[in-house]
Write a protein that binds this DNA or RNA. Structure first.
Length: 99
DNA sequence: ATTATGACCGAAG
DNA sequence: GCTTCGGCCATAA
């Protein structure tokens, strides 16, 4: 397959109301230094219905990019009761999903 | 084979 | 808090 499918299949497991980070995903795939590549992989996803790419944020809590725009990403997260203040997730530790 | 680009990260100022 | 910078990986040209 490829990195893309690996990433997509993995993040499908992130439940509603939880998030993960690019770096965490990279580590979970055994490529600890590939955080950037993970972002690229998510950017190529088109199936927004099945793959919750909006649940992946930056390591410092900032929401990060989204193919449909940062605005939409924040809306989606808020829709799952995740607090966003000044473009950052509050209590990132608390919302983090453990793989 | 080389270069550029991007939904990143950590350290440093 | 903030910004800048070098480093990293994968993909495309």
């Amino acid at each position: 397959m490829g990195l893309n499918t690996e990433v997509w299949n993995l993040i499908k497991k992130i439940p509603r109301g939880k998030v993960s980070t690019y770096g965490t995903i990279a580590r979970a795939l055994g490529k600890p230094l590939a955080a950037r590549a993970v972002g690229n992989a998510l950017n190529k996803n088109k199936d927004f219905a099945k793959i919750p790419c909006y649940r992946v944020v930056r390591s410092d809590g900032r929401v990060g990019g989204y193919a449909l725009g940062e605005r939409k990403k924040i809306e989606k997260l808020r829709g799952e009761k995740i607090k966003i203040v000044k473009g950052k997730v509050e209590n990132l530790k608390k919302c983090l999903y453990k793989f």
